[in-house]
């Protein structure tokens, strides 16, 4: 009786440990969608490594599923999704960073122009 309660508690753990998960179709679909989304976000250009990693994992996940290794397929699909999502965010932030740089450069040029223009229109500027 004294051993019964711990035994009951331990059963689900043992079951989880031993069980083979179902085919991760949903996770694979989510991963594919995430990869496409990353490509749309410009990850091919701005987060190439992360995108490539996501694709490789997605590919391996597909292969694992085909071999019936659902556990591996699930993990790789989940990782591919996260890699793709990371790639998308990274691409976005890179583009934003570039936009900031461009704006800062443009503003600096404008400021230079303003300064030059003001210099030309100072009262002492008589030919």
């Amino acid at each position: 009786m004294k051993l019964l309660i711990p035994m009951i508690l331990t059963v689900p753990l043992l079951a989880a440990c031993a069980s083979q998960p179902p085919v991760p179709n949903e996770e694979l679909a989510v991963a594919r969608s995430a990869v496409a989304n990353a490509e749309d976000a410009g990850a091919r250009e701005h987060a190439e490594l992360d995108l490539r990693q996501a694709r490789q994992k997605l590919e391996q996940a597909e292969q694992a599923r085909q071999t019936g290794d659902n556990q591996t397929a699930l993990q790789l699909a989940q990782q591919a999704e996260m890699d793709a999502r990371y790639a998308a965010f990274r691409a976005r932030s890179k583009r934003a960073s570039e936009a900031v740089e461009e704006l800062e450069r443009g503003i600096a040029e404008l400021r230079t122009e303003v300064a030059r223009t003001l210099e030309q229109s100072t009262p002492g500027d008589r030919q």
Binding site: M82, R85, Y86, F89, R90, R92
Partner: peptide, 20 residues
Amino acid sequence: ERQVGIAAESARGRGLDNRV
């Protein structure tokens, strides 16, 4: 770990968007 990266990039992106 990836989610931390996502959070960081997301925050960076939003910060940069605000900066833009």
